[in-house]
Design a protein around this nucleic acid. Structure first.
Length: 271
DNA sequence: ATGGTCGGCAACCGA
């Protein structure tokens, strides 16, 4: 069975619901994982999504900030949310699909929005950076993020770290810029390796090819400068390593009207 | 070296 999942930091789902609709009509992923929905659950645009054929939706929203959602054509068997760093921030939601979705074995998707970490890359001076580092440490130690050999798990989201040299437009110029400092890159890689996750972007598009999923709003012409970063990720458990059939970044979406600063990232599997 | 732009929500905070 063909299975596709997209991750997209939408930066306000209410403001950009028509961009979500445009994407869903064009790509029709089975599951769309959103971050930065910036929307309380009772204000989430459920009806519009259901009309588009996405009737199964799990929400972990809050007012004004953060917020994650799993939007699906296929029924969910269960969903749950976790908190990190003793904060109530809405930064994680997971869903499990099973026989109701036509799967012979269960599939779990974790959707994360890792703290951005502020501007100053020093945890002693910047509590937001300290929070980001603690969040990554907690992810590393989080038992549900340690899939067993036969578990079919996918971890997606805006992880707010571009871990490798060719995940940014200039490794040298970004070494002291939050999202690419050595300490956070090491910590994200530790999360990945401790859970034995496979980073499918780099499985399919090895370095030194550049990969970006985010371009700052603060550029006169984002496409001319092309100063991007790879902040959005799709990881899979070892059991899914051989079932990846496609990986693509909808770069076009960055030039849609009133875009998010992140673009959709989509993986296709043969399950 | 610096400042540049967004969105939420109604003065700044977070990104």
């Amino acid at each position: 069975m063909r299975f596709t999942v997209t991750t997209w930091n939408i930066n306000s789902v209410r403001l950009r619901i028509e961009l979500v609709a445009k994407f869903l009509k064009a790509v029709r992923p089975d599951v769309l994982c959103l971050q930065e929905t910036k929307c309380p659950d009772d204000a989430f645009p459920l009806k519009r999504l259901k009309r588009l054929g996405y009737e199964h939706i799990a929400l972990n929203g809050q007012k004004g900030y953060h917020g994650v959602a799993i939007v699906s054509k296929l029924p969910l068997e269960s969903s749950d949310v976790r908190t990190f760093c003793n904060k109530l921030d809405s930064r994680h939601i997971a869903a499990t699909f099973g026989t109701g979705a036509g799967l012979s074995e269960p599939l779990t998707i974790h959707n994360f929005y890792v703290p951005a970490g502020g501007d100053i890359p020093d945890p002693d001076l910047n509590p937001k950076f300290a929070h980001k580092l603690s969040f990554l440490d907690e992810m590393k130690d989080c038992a549900p993020l340690h899939p067993k050999a036969r578990d079919r798990h996918i971890l997606v989201g805006d992880l707010n770290v571009a871990p490798h040299e060719d995940d940014v437009w200039s490794h040298k110029q970004l070494l002291k810029v939050v999202s690419h400092t050595p300490i956070e890159c090491e910590k994200l890689i530790a999360v990945r390796d401790h859970g034995q996750w496979i980073d499918i972007a780099r499985q399919r598009i090895p370095e030194p090819e550049k990969i970006y999923t985010w371009w700052s709003y603060r550029a006169a012409d984002w496409t001319a400068a092309n100063r991007g970063r790879r902040l959005d990720h799709v990881w899979v458990s070892p059991a899914l390593g051989d079932s990846v059939r496609d990986f693509r970044i909808t770069r076009d979406a960055r030039s849609w009207e009133r875009p998010s600063d992140h673009v959709p990232v989509t993986a296709t599997f043969d399950l």
